[in-house]
Design a binder for these strands. Structure first.
Length: 268
DNA sequence: TGCCAGGATGATG
DNA sequence: CATCATCATGGC
């Protein structure tokens, strides 16, 4: 029997607000001055930050180890990663001004679905659509918390069943993803063990998953920290910063660099 | 290549 | 107030 309690950690390079609200995950909401609440892996969690101290409220030691540690990428040395990124004069600004962003390792299906919804969309509405999807089809976890619905539930709902979430033209893509994944047509093990482009090819079998969504899913859903959306990176941000191409220093952690740049640009 | 399919939201004029 | 672009697409 697991006991719910509060787990406290000391962790530098972890800014709760930036990590939870930088456009990589869409299910966290600010509930207080330094307090956030959300659901991942069918578990609700409240987080509080005080300087370097982070409290994980309402979890168990087991869940902290098996779910939240990998979810918040707590075993990665972000100080080392950020130092490496800061060696690049262009990234330095973004990493310094937006310090403390960690890459969340979300559930693969949730990441795929979330980034399908992100196509030609904006963050407030992405959040709204996902919230309605979870309320409509997700398991009720008590209180105001709902799990992200299983692909089976979503597939069963069908395009018409998704009407209330108001996903627009994306509904048919969500259903295609739910169907293919619930039938086992997408080989998750292969994605985990393959090089980036092969994993991307597997994901692109899903309608609504293009090159960029595939890279997002690899980064946020499969922990492939070197994946990043080439188009967004190069054309939007890097074009001004890097007329001569990508900096070498980000090899190995490009996804992390991308997230810092994305958040930095959003705050300009 | 460019546009559009839903539509809400924040930025901007 | 109006108008515009929006984080990741696909089909015409």
């Amino acid at each position: 029997m697991t006991v719910k309690n509060t787990v406290k950690i000391e962790c530098g390079c972890f800014d709760l607000a930036r990590t939870l609200d930088c456009g990589q995950a869409f299910r966290w909401a600010q509930t207080g001055e330094n307090e956030w609440h959300g659901v991942a892996f069918s578990r609700a969690l409240t987080l509080r930050q005080n300087g370097n101290e982070i409290e994980f409220i309402g979890t168990s030691d087991e869940d902290f180890e098996s779910i939240w540690k990998p979810y918040f990428d707590l075993d990665r040395d972000y100080s080392a990663v950020c130092d490496r990124l800061k060696a690049d004069s262009h990234l330095e600004k973004a990493v310094t001004e937006c310090s403390g962003i960690r890459i969340l390792k979300q559930e693969p299906w949730e990441a795929i679905c979330s980034f399908i919804i992100s196509a030609n969309n904006n963050i407030p509405r992405i959040k709204g659509i996902i919230d309605r999807l979870c309320r409509l089809l997700g398991e009720h976890l008590g209180g105001d918390d709902y799990a992200f619905p299983t692909p089976e539930r979503v597939a069963a709902a069908g395009i018409d069943g998704l009407a209330p979430i108001r996903a627009g033209f994306r509904a048919k893509y969500i259903i295609d993803a739910a169907e293919k994944i619930s039938k086992g047509e997408i080989d998750f093990e292969k994605i985990y063990s393959s090089p980036l482009d092969e994993g991307g090819d597997e994901l692109i079998k899903i309608k609504g998953v293009g090159e960029k969504v595939a890279q997002c899913a690899l980064l946020y859903g499969f922990g492939k920290v070197d994946a990043f959306p080439v188009d967004v990176w190069v054309k939007r941000i890097m074009a001004e910063m890097y007329p001569d191409g990508l900096p070498e220093c980000t090899n190995g952690v490009r996804g992390i660099a991308q997230q810092y740049l994305f958040h930095w640009r959003r705050n300009q």
